[in-house]
Design a protein around this nucleic acid. Structure first.
Length: 327
DNA sequence: TGACCAATAT
DNA sequence: TATATTGGTC
């Protein structure tokens, strides 16, 4: 963070060809939210009052250094998941860091969800902080979080049993899905494979399996949409979630083989850092303003400053929603 | 061997 | 229904 992001990092991402041009990057940067728009990770994400209201122990302040370190470890952690992986891992770092617009990388962290379908029973009625397990936040700071969570999860037997514990079911929140879609959009549906998506998404705790599963569904959705394209909007429920799909439909047709450097967005350049702005509240499908067809941030800024969800989003982005996954 | 993907299970 | 897991294939 203290240091500049090396622009050359935009070069080739897993087979991507043409290098990142500075002006393109600059172009991008203009689209990025300015530092003021972002909630610094070094800042408390949960106000003390709120924390106490929900019986959450307030998080410690993080220094910028902490944040930086955390993001770095996160990245390395994620990279560590694949053995051979990417030639220049920095690509992903840049993807991530530059999005922070100087604010620093913010590897997203996801929230875990109780996997038992407990929507009827299990009255979460009394908010007496009894459900740390229901929706737990995982600190993005390093592995401590993971181990802490695991300890919390299988409090009795952290060592072996914890290993065998099922990791909680991942919930694809609109934010998370949005990130997914953005990455897929940048890769092009044809090049979007679970591993790459997972890495580009840079979401702590997200596994390839998670992505694969979601990708499967997403592809089905795209197929269906293409099939129905002329027949009006689908009434399916996933439409709500997927409605925010910027992925160019032609990508599917684009069986056009190997041109991996799909003209993706005009010039087939790298997946750029994606300023994640995701206007729609879950129940309100709306056209995606956030990402134009060029993958460029389009209407974000006004939105960001006005949209009340913005704050939430910030929170969602930088903060956990993750399922701990130890592999 | 690992990744992808479709089918199937939960 | 959404997500996880499995099994075949490359």
């Amino acid at each position: 963070m203290g240091e500049e992001v090396n622009m050359s990092e935009y070069e080739e991402l897993g087979g991507g060809e043409n290098g990142g041009d500075d002006d393109r990057v600059a172009e991008w940067e203009t689209g990025l939210p300015c530092a003021d728009d972002l909630t610094p990770l070094s800042q408390l994400l949960i106000p003390p009052e709120l924390a106490s209201a929900f019986s959450i122990s307030p998080e410690p302040y993080r220094t910028v250094l902490d944040v930086s370190r955390a993001s770095r470890t996160t990245l390395s952690g994620i990279r560590g998941q694949h053995s051979k992986g990417f030639s220049s891992s920095d690509n992903f770092k840049s993807f991530n860091e530059s999005r922070g617009g100087g604010g620093g990388g913010d590897p997203m962290v996801i929230e875990e969800a109780e996997e038992t379908t407990d929507r009827d029973g299990d009255g979460d009625g009394d908010g007496s902080g009894t459900d740390p397990r229901k929706s737990r936040r995982i600190d993005c700071s390093e592995l401590e979080a993971d181990s802490a969570l695991r300890a919390e999860n299988g409090a009795e037997d952290p060592s072996s049993a914890a290993r065998t514990l099922k990791r909680p079911r991942l919930v694809w929140t609109p934010q998370l899905h949005r990130r997914f879609v953005d990455v897929v959009g940048h890769l092009g549906i044809k090049n979007a494979v679970p591993k790459t998506i997972m890495q580009l998404m840079n979401v702590e705790g997200l596994t390839r399996e998670n992505v694969a599963s979601h990708l499967q569904k997403y592809r089905l959705y795209l197929k269906r949409m293409q099939g129905l394209s002329s027949e009006g909007p689908s009434s399916s429920s996933d439409h709500q979630l997927f409605a925010s799909t910027p992925v160019p439909p032609q990508s599917l047709h684009e069986s056009g083989a190997g041109s991996a450097h799909n003209h993706m967005h005009g010039n087939g350049h790298m997946p750029m850092p994606i300023p994640m702005s995701y206007p729609p509240p879950p129940m309100m499908p709306m056209p995606v303003l956030g990402v134009g067809h060029m993958g460029m941030p389009v209407g974000n800024h006004g939105f960001e400053s006005h949209n009340p969800y913005n704050m939430l989003r910030q929170r969602d982005w930088s903060y956990p929603h993750v399922a701990p996954n130890d592999k």
